[in-house]
Nucleic acid binder design. Sequence first.
DNA 1: AAACAGTGTTCACTATATGTGAACGAATTA
DNA 2: TAATTCGTTCACATATAGTGAACACTGTTT
Lengths: 250, 250
Amino acid sequence: MEHYLTSVQKCCTLLKVFINGNKEWGVTDLSKELQWSKGAVHKMLSTLESEGFIKQNPQTKLYSLGYTLLELGNKVKHDDDWVSFSRSYLQQLAELTKESVCLCIRDHRDAIYVDKLDSPLPIRFIIDAYRRFPLYATSASRVILAFSPEEMWDAALEEPITAFTEQSLTDLSEIRSRLELIRSRGYEISSNMRNVGVTGIAAPIYQADGSVNASISLIGPSDRMEPNVDRWLSALLQMTKEMSRLVGYK
Amino acid sequence: MEHYLTSVQKCCTLLKVFINGNKEWGVTDLSKELQWSKGAVHKMLSTLESEGFIKQNPQTKLYSLGYTLLELGNKVKHDDDWVSFSRSYLQQLAELTKESVCLCIRDHRDAIYVDKLDSPLPIRFIIDAYRRFPLYATSASRVILAFSPEEMWDAALEEPITAFTEQSLTDLSEIRSRLELIRSRGYEISSNMRNVGVTGIAAPIYQADGSVNASISLIGPSDRMEPNVDRWLSALLQMTKEMSRLVGYK
DNA sequence: AAACAGTGTTCACTATATGTGAACGAATTA
DNA sequence: TAATTCGTTCACATATAGTGAACACTGTTT
């Protein structure tokens, strides 16, 4: 089936421009960005505005995302089974470690932190949650990828690899052997791959059928993480083992 | 101008069904709810799914909101000028009072809490943020309505009034005189109107032109709020006065 | 003060996308 | 095994959407 609704696809394309782009756009700018006629852009924007998906600044006439999307995004989070299931575990882990913790899930060929708790300490890593990023990028997402079928490895590594830091893995064979390492030891610990001076510890949640679509991760400043790696890792593994059992994994 | 894009309007209508309705929908259910043909509903859902705005459970075949909406909703919050401007003030107020605090804004004829901090105390009021509600409903939103032009009063009171508790104001003249009271004293304190046993204290943020589109509110269990009302109110008023000054109000 | 160069916005028309409603296969229930 | 109910597919008649030029406005430049 390939008969999608054209104008709905275009509507989604337009909204997505706002995710990684500017927070405000003019009609002409969007027209250039999307290669649509000004008339088409304007008609799309005013339709979306009438629905609360877009708002227009009365002074500057520029458009930005509307509050109905805030409602929808909040509903996604509150309806999510992984989020409601994991909340108390995240709190427990945050309490114990005083570091930032998060729940990572896979959505198609991307990863997203769908829930998080930031460390209460003055020096802390603030997790940039609710945003899509590549599966190979962080310890939490690499754990998910490692335990996914090989087709997923291919899909995730198909697009050009982004290096987030100097120490990011960029070579395909390097990434693949890293994934094999994760698969064999059952967890991931990495430093400086997504953010310099930051260490992440991540473990997978196994589902009833043995597949993995979610992971729990602990992220903090490397110098504070390193002395505690063994303690935090065993606490994390114990927790994810228990969580896996509860969702039916044997 | 009335030539909106029909299928985009319908796409928005479909997505909004998920906000207040079930978290999962089948094609037939949505077809009945929206009075569209099954074919049309299916085509819309599969288009939105291909864009990540909707996801389908492979087992049950039921549809729910997709993670791209989580990304968009998060962007709305992070791009919002009121949210970034108010964050430190909310923290300050939360620190002082140990009660839940929030930032309320008006969007057309609705109110939304666009940011919040929940009380750290074991007994606390958890603010249901990021959801639209009527302007007449809570102390925070009534403050905004009170200082809005009278056309807004008419618009907000046009729809049938929802009573959230036994003590909610439902009579139109009762609401209007309440708004006049708020306008004359410059703040709102109310109990049991949205939630039984809960008291809210709210004050407006005035913009450069004297208009009001945002307010700060303090919400907590009535028995803990009452002994502190005077202290909290003066702290709140001092804060909103300072905030109003900073956005250009004289 | 006048011309200009930007906006966002509007419009009528033709090519194009879209909703219909019946038919399909796959589950699930009787 | 028959009946029901689900999501999904399809071809065609009909309603919709993109075009690109013209518009009204704003602020700037001459």
